[in-house]
Amino acid sequence: MADKGSSMEKRWHKQTVGTDGKAPFVWLHGWGQTGASMARLADLFKADGQHTLYDLPGFGETAPLQEGAGTEDYADALAAEMKASGLGPAVIVGHSFGGRMAVQMAARHPDLVRAIIIIGGAGLKRRRSLAFRLRAFWLKLVGRMARLSDKLFGTHFREAYTQKFGSADYRNAGVLRGTFVRAVNENLTAAAKAGRAPALLIYGSEDTETPPEIGRRYEQLIPIARFELVPGFGHLDILTRGAYQCEALMRTFLEDLKNA
């Protein structure tokens, strides 16, 4: 099933399922996951398409891109890989970080994109409470002081700071730390507005990583977009026990796409 992307400088590890000759689907997983996290949902569409589930660069078995690569670099690399594999225009399904890539793909490589389906997608600044913003301001200041002190006096405060205050994803990002920092600080408003592909936005009501509010704002930004709220599901379990809810919403969307 799994094979290596050929002819590419950076080889993309991928899994393929489904029926050859049917409409191509490209599945992009979330931060810290691999292509396998999309398999449960992709499997439900095996009779309807030809599916490619990628390990994104730096995750699973795919080598990372250059240090500090942003989501636009990920999208460009994916576009090159899709062209090399003869894929497209495809329906691009992205979860979380993969959702950022889907938005970038629609904006930068419209010829490769038939439609985008975003499940718990990130990419817009979250609205935070004043208390949260104050705390973040202070912590950032402390972090900068720690770095300054390390530089001036050779202390090791910064690492301790990271261990104490950094998020799990940040601590575990390794070589991808630069990409991670760029991704969490990026704002895809312009990219979302630029895309012309129809978009389906699926968000779980209990999602605390990418709350439904983000999806509602994407719906306002993306010219042809449909927002769907799935009550009772969170950021990750929407892909597992929520798979049938996603399946139903996606089927309706794909049907409407055919008739459009």
Binding site: G234, D237, T240, G242
Partner: peptide, 16 residues
Amino acid sequence: AGGEPGGPKLDTGPSE
């Protein structure tokens, strides 16, 4: 099989 009886049942997928 594969799970301890009485253990916490997590909100995992239908594959579980």
